[in-house]
Write a protein that binds this DNA or RNA. Structure first.
Lengths: 361, 361
DNA sequence: TTGAAAGCGGTACCAA
DNA sequence: TTGGTACCGCTTTCAA
């Protein structure tokens, strides 16, 4: 015999009991299915409201018992960025334990190099949803279109691409990241000097955006600084080092550098070797253990932390909520980068040593 | 007849079937309950590992069908901070829909004024967990001790208090917030000038911490600035305005102000009235629509955003995960404040107008 | 149009 | 030490 429910929120059973109908009828009425007279439906809905009914999602989930597999396709390089991003995805999956969502990771060498191939090799179609860092938008567009046709949701992280054919995109606001760098460098370097942006690859949307933002902000907030042509390192340490050394030699008047990719080590090294550390103000991108020393010693004034962990976590949450609860997320989430300075650096260092790469989550 | 399970992750049924035992036995073995021979337990555990068994938390939750009520006790003032914080809690509850956690809000006038009374009036013991912004630690200590004895978890937000007798605490790192303000003001004001901290009430731990951090950072990173005695506004607009006006009159050499509470409007107004806007550099605390104009016009150089929404969300998540899954959260979460500058302000303005008070979540 | 009943994957209890 | 079974709240199917 079914026990009397003693308390707690009302369920369909309570509604049915109160009205003297069956739970089947209540279900049909609540979901607007056919097979219920208008009058009965009305009565059920009223009673539901009266009892303040909310469906028990746990029970619903158990009954439907859907389970999802998410495929994650991310580059290995730059590890200091993508490792925390993966960790964030894992953290999200852990927090949502019970949602029946499984995550499978696949890697390829570098942003924009081998992404499509990796997806093909590992049969991206087998997944119910995909998390992806698009390198060159054009290359992934084709896959996204196919995915859209199959109604398979894709979430972009780290960089954005064409707004169509994707469920959502999580990234730091790159135009404004560049803007912050320009505004701060303008304050740091009061006299008429030259500044340069060292970036990865301007074919990547994100990198181009940062440059645009930097230039725009410089023009309005720091017009006393002149911008040299941007340098593309293509994420090659050798190239970055060589280009920086040459730059320093050719421009003794250089006052500041904005490094808009996480690959800052070779640039910092080149500046140090040329005895210009501290004389050339540097704003770098992303935070990792080595960065701490550079900030501490004043070689780098600030790092713009792109919060990969949060990006990963949010990507997972957006995708899994879409799959499980069916609710569409924000189409485009733009995170504010964290500014890591000497005075607040310990917060980030501590987080790192505690196994979380960000002072949150 | 029970249908054959066709695929998906293995359950206790699959384990039982493979070994020819009953699901009851499997359950006992998996949970280390008594009533299972060592040999059977061994076999079950091995088979579980072999089938890569993970318990279906949805099913477990449904069966156990526990539901929790969380009591939230927060001040009404300052609304620009505590309203988003409440919104964050609601957002967390929404995201965790299905976890059977109900949230009940109770308010009292001001931080440290009426908190204990409100908790007594609304019978805090009736709740399974509590979220609280402790004003003066000493006053809430008593309740916390009682709660601890009843094994009732309490999570602090916005400010911290005695580390004992609480499950967790979520807040921005206030010492470092003060530190950031000092470092930036040191860069903004290059010559030997005076600076002042305008705070709420130094009896509140958090406010005292910001002052400490500011002083410490000033001494090491901006020794050219001299600190005047801190001003306490006690969150009274009139007092803040009057004190600021007097300060400006008495100290024509004042170069910078750090406002360490969200109540910055009267201070900004007083500076503007005395024709010193732009001449006195200001770093304020928290972001709300009016702040946008002040930053845009240059009256305020930067705002340290304390991310109330995130604090609320994290507080809910910590508490609900403890209640539902039983896992203890980080004892003390220290968020990094966001620095809102002219160049990245639009991000925060957009978030506000989109109904989220922070560029995340 | 409605009612009755079978599960979803666990937990817990009673009987063997 | 084991097996068997009711039940959590909902969805769905089949029968009335």
């Amino acid at each position: 015999m079914r026990k009397q429910k003693e308390s707690g929120p009302a369920g369909i059973r309570q509604i049915a009991e109160a009205l003297g109908v069956s739970i089947g009828t209540v279900d049909r009425a609540l979901h607007g299915r056919e097979g219920v007279s208008a009058k009965t439906r009305e009565r059920v809905l009223r009673q539901a409201k009266k009892l303040n009914y909310t469906p028990n999602l746990v029970a619903r989930n158990l009954k439907l018992n859907r389970h999802f597999r998410i495929g994650v396709f991310l580059p290995e390089q730059i590890a200091s960025f993508f490792d925390p991003l993966r960790a964030g995805i894992r953290a999200g999956a852990l927090a949502a334990a019970g949602a029946n969502v499984e995550v499978v990771f696949h890697s390829y060498p570098q942003l924009g190099q081998g992404d499509v191939e990796s997806m093909e090799t590992h049969r991206w179609r087998q997944f119910d949803g995909i998390i992806l860092a698009p390198g060159q938008p054009a290359k992934v567009t084709f896959i996204c279109q196919e995915a859209e046709e199959e109604n398979k949701p894709i979430v972009f992280v780290a960089t954005d691409a064409a707004r169509e054919n994707r469920l959502a995109s999580i990234a730091v606001e790159s135009v404004l990241s560049g803007g912050i760098a320009a505004e701060l460098l303008g304050r740091l370097v009061p006299d008429r000097r030259q500044v340069v942006v060292i970036t990865g690859d301007l074919k990547i949307q994100d990198h181009a955006d940062k440059l645009r933002g930097f230039a725009a902000s410089l023009a309005t907030l720091a017009p006393h600084l002149t911008m040299l042509p941007a340098i593309q390192s293509h994420e090659s340490a050798r190239d970055a080092h060589k280009a920086t050394s040459r730059l320093l030699k050719e421009h003794p008047d250089l006052g500041a550098i904005y490094i808009s990719t996480a690959n800052s080590a070779p640039v910092i090294a080149a500046v140090a070797e040329s005895q210009r550390a501290g004389k050339v103000q540097i704003i770098a991108t992303d935070f990792f253990p080595e960065m701490a020393q550079w900030i501490e010693s004043g070689q780098v004034f600030a790092a713009l932390h792109q919060r990969p962990f949060t990006q990963g976590r949010m990507a997972f949450e957006a995708l899994s909520r879409f799959l499980v609860q069916g609710c569409a997320p924000e189409r485009s989430v733009r995170l504010a980068p964290h500014l890591v300075l000497r005075s607040n650096m310990s917060l980030f260092v501590d987080a790192y040593s505690a196994g979380r790469p960000e002072p949150e989550f």
